[in-house]
């Protein structure tokens, strides 16, 4: 897998760091996949998925969101879902410009799933969306994660700093974004899903404390704008990437959905070529090195990147 660093720009002129990974040789109609890691995860954390997709002929664009950890502008302290959505749009447009094609597929992890739905609701050239532990009710998930319903509080009740998954987050931008755009609400998800005619799938663990399978099923029933597929994973936990044995099973399924062209529920996981154990390990370490060297370069340039 060959990975190159590119920069995309949001409509507000902020830099989004993008990694483009492609096979040595790819078909003219190779699927273009734009992939977003979830909250508190970097694009290098989804390297094994990228490796698998590229190994099966796809061209993969990954990005770190702005106002987040990773190589893009801003700090996770100021995280908003809108920032994540803008980053996704920037990455999609960069992919289109680079590959000179409109059709793009989205692979989203966790919270990025909400951004993916919102983008796809307004972009008819999104061909399909695959999510892993994809959040459908942002408000509820954030309440579960933080232990309190901060989004329903009055502004003045908000703490100065909210620790979320090991990171200090200023709750005000998130609260404001939520109030102004309703981007974290279940209703917004349903609205988006109704507007999306492309196939949508979500792999959700039955024991996920943050994303409820039933909630997802209901959302897909309510937001039935096209083919909707819920893949239930008989695992526990939200961070499925931690269990590499489970990841290999999920990867196989995810890849079959991401690169296929027919109905998602007919996708054949057997047709997927899985990366080797060593290739996954090598890619993981190589991408960490790439990440670190880009961070060092950014510091040298005096860039605001983390």
């Amino acid at each position: 897998m060959k990975t190159e660093r590119l920069d995309a720009w949001t409509s507000e002129g902020r830099r989004v760091a993008v990694w483009r990974s492609a096979p040595e040789d790819f078909a003219p109609d190779a699927p273009i996949v734009v992939m977003s890691p979830g909250f508190a995860r970097r694009m290098r954390d989804v390297g094994s998925i990228a490796l698998c997709l590229v190994g099966n002929g796809a061209i993969v664009y990954r990005f770190d969101s702005i106002d987040h950890i990773g190589l893009s502008d801003g700090d996770i302290r100021n995280f908003t879902l809108t920032g994540m959505r803008q980053s996704m749009i920037a990455a999609i447009e960069l992919a289109r410009a680079t590959e000179n094609r409109r059709g793009v597929r989205l692979v989203a992890m966790s919270l990025a799933n909400l951004a993916a739905y919102q983008v796809a609701a307004e972009d008819k050239d999104i061909e399909r969306i695959m999510a892993l532990s994809g959040v459908v009710d942002g408000h509820r998930t954030i309440t579960e994660v933080t232990g309190r319903d901060y989004l329903s509080m009055a502004r003045e009740e908000l703490p100065a700093i909210l620790p979320v998954m090991g990171h200090d987050v200023d709750p005000v931008p998130l609260w404001t974004d939520s109030r102004e755009t309703r981007c974290l609400s279940y209703e917004r998800t349903i609205r988006s899903l109704k507007a999306i005619s492309a196939p949508v799938a979500n792999c959700v663990a039955e024991g996920d404390p943050w994303v409820d399978v039933g909630e997802c099923t209901t959302a897909y029933t309510d937001g039935d704008g096209g083919e909707r597929l819920v893949i239930k994973l008989p695992y526990s936990g939200h961070d499925l990437g931690r269990n590499p044995v489970a990841v290999m099973t999920i990867l196989e399924r995810m890849a079959s959905l991401a690169i296929g062209n027919g109905p998602m529920h007919d996708a054949d996981p057997q047709a997927v070529l899985m990366p080797t154990f060593d290739a996954v390990l090598e890619a993981r370490i190589a991408e960490r090195q790439q990440d670190f060297s880009e961070q060092r370069a950014a510091k040298t340039e005096g860039s605001p990147a983390v």
């Binding site: 792999c203 099923t217 897909y220 029933t221 039935d224 083919e227 909707r228 597929l229 819920v230 893949i231 239930k232 994973l233 008989p234 695992y235 526990s236 936990g237 931690r242 269990n243 590499p244 044995v245 489970a246 099973t249 999920i250 399924r253 998602m264 529920h265």
Partner: peptide, 20 residues
Amino acid sequence: MFTQNLAPVSLIDSVVFGDH
């Protein structure tokens, strides 16, 4: 709306990789 199930993860994997 379609639902599908993936094969369950083994107990050993849930212990080795789990948070417990």
